[in-house]
């Protein structure tokens, strides 16, 4: 006896209709399943119906000038192996490589990562520094939401019942970096992670921190301290102090608050240096 009924719609309209029809008695959207299946098995998510997105034509990667649109069901491994993505968004490449191993990344998707909104998501910090916009599709059409507003907290987003993530849009290529610290590198989540990116058109730095509660966040105080362009040593020192002071760090089994604040500063230093080394 199956714990759930699997529904496999062929179009986005059918998928949205299936989600809405089942909204009353527990329904979940299935992309790669690498996170959802564990939560279903452990009862953290209860769903009598699971709507598979595998037949939807969303495994796409589209460039429009400097803008990259990533289809929500594109496996992470496809992003990782794309040379243009790696060159244009090196921080995103770093972050994708931090998600499990290749066998997981062949199934795990960008949309799944955002929809599941895990506090230790490796993709969210980088996507925040890249000003990612999430494109949603529902019964009343599409809407775009800034990622920072889409994410609410641990496992919570502004996705409405019957809505799906259709794509993630990155407005421009940015030199960027993502660095993390873990107790065990290969099979644990990050204790703390720092993403940095520089917008050449706006001349602004962007700094985000992950592995913090209840969700990864931008740290505008640190970004501001870096100024516009190549930061001085003094500016980097002030940014390090800002990230230590303003990061919403808490203690848990993976590390004390003090240790994490220290790590945040160290990783910020290294992320800025790595980003600078990636300037064109």
């Amino acid at each position: 006896m199956s714990a759930f009924e699997l529904i496999v719609p062929a179009t986005a309209e059918e998928a949205v209709a299936a989600l809405r029809a089942a909204a009353g008695d527990g329904v979940a959207a299935l992309a790669g399943g690498t996170d959802l299946l564990l939560d279903l098995e452990d009862g953290r998510v209860t769903a009598r119906r699971v709507v598979s997105l595998r037949r939807l034509p969303w495994r796409t990667l589209d460039w429009n000038g400097p803008t990259l649109t990533i289809g929500s069901t594109l496996p992470l491994r496809r992003l990782e192996l794309d040379p243009e993505v790696r060159a244009g968004f090196p921080g995103l490449y770093d972050a994708v490589r931090a998600v499990g191993g290749p066998a997981l990344r062949h199934r795990a998707t960008v949309g799944g990562n955002l929809g599941r909104s895990a506090p230790a998501s490796d993709l969210v910090p980088v996507l925040l520094t890249l000003d990612a916009e999430v494109e949603l599709i529902g019964a009343h059409g599409s809407r775009g939401v800034a990622l920072d507003r889409f994410l609410v907290g641990s496992r919570r987003t502004t996705l409405a019942a019957g809505e799906l993530i259709r794509a993630v849009r990155l407005p421009e290529r940015r030199p960027s970096a993502y660095l993390w610290q873990r107790v065990r590198p290969s099979n644990d989540i990050s204790q703390i992670a720092v993403a940095t990116a520089y917008s050449p058109t706006r001349r602004t730095w962007h700094v985000a921190i992950g592995g913090v509660a209840p969700r990864p966040v931008l740290v505008p105080e640190a970004a501001g301290a870096l100024g516009g362009g190549r930061p001085t040593d003094d500016a980097v020192r002030r940014a390090r102090e800002a990230v230590r002071r303003h990061a919403p760090v808490t203690a848990d089994k993976r590390g004390s608050e003090e240790y994490r604040r220290h790590l945040a500063g160290v990783l910020l230093d290294r992320a800025v240096a790595t980003t600078l080394a990636r300037f064109a």
């Binding site: 299946l37 066998a103 062949h106 099979n187």
Partner: peptide
């Protein structure tokens, strides 16, 4: 999905068969 012992190829791509629905 932590240990990799269940890895198989699906259309040539390595895949964790413990985290993949047969359907």
């Amino acid at each position: 999905g932590n240990c990799g012992a269940c890895t198989v190829l699906v259309d040539g791509a390595s895949t964790l068969s413990c985290l993949t629905l047969t359907h």
